[in-house]
Amino acid sequence: MPDQVLYAIEVTLNGLMTGVMYSLVALGFVLIFKASGVFNYAQGVLALFAALTLVGLQNGQVPFAHVINATFGTNLSTFGWHLPALLAILLTAGIMVILAIIIERLVLKHLVSQAPIILFMATIGLAYFLEGLGDVMWGADIKKLDVGLPQGISDTIERVTDGWFGYGFFIDNLDIVATVVAVLLVAALTIFSQYSKQGRALRAVADDHQAALSVGISLRFIWVLVWSIAGFVALVAGIMWGTKSGVQFSLSLIALKALPVLMLGGFTSIPGAIIGGLIIGVGEKLFEFIMSSPDLAGAWFGFTIGATENWFAYVLALLFLVFRPQGLFGEKIIERV
């Protein structure tokens, strides 16, 4: 096979893996949107916050150490212990549940009957608040996250593909783990929503708020539940992204990519979120590969451009929406008066 094609295949595979990561974040959006009609802009920051908390707990950081030090002139930093990864993850999951309860109490409860766009803007405010809180609690420096997931290029794949094509593919072990975790997560969510009592209530609410209320489902409980699940999904996404590129502010920006993913896949479809994520992951990697290659774009157009990943997803989603406003899997809306 010619080299360009092999490169392209490698880029595609890497794009698929990145796409899985996008899908993970997008999944959280879909869950909340389906159950409550809230377009949760804060989902990305939720992932950042979860990752920060996880690192903080694992390393035994004292929360708010900076503030306490600045106010009282003390010099706190850590408790001096190191929690095992699994315990830290469980504790963080617990904190995400508490956060979900607080968000429901302080924010959502008061905005029940508001227009979707008001709720959307409220979640932008929430994102700002959480971002500030995360930084104030745990400090804004870039942190390394290690919960024992395998990292680095997979030797096996490189060796095997080298044997087949004479060209070893570089695939990150972490990406493979992320894919497996994403599949498991989707399967677990599907089973939960199809077969458990809470899951059924969730689907009922997603279908029709009023009707669900009238058969005795507590909307507030559902909201807490769904925000908790979204918090958990955010935690998983935070672990993956954090392990990959360190825990820092840009994590919440990467998570913004989930938005165009949703616009492609439709806001209410879990398969849509996954396929949308894959399309965008592969699309942006391939586009960048082609546009920045002197042999391809350079030869075809006479110039090359780089860093297209910054905008490719958004522009693709924008163009797509203009021609199919309901997304890939959404239903066509008939307007009434």
């Binding site: 409220a122 932008i124 405010g125 608040f129 971002e131 500030g132 809180l133």
Partner: peptide, 9 residues
Amino acid sequence: LMIVGALIV
């Protein structure tokens, strides 16, 4: 950031 976010909400 926290204050602005809280004020928005």
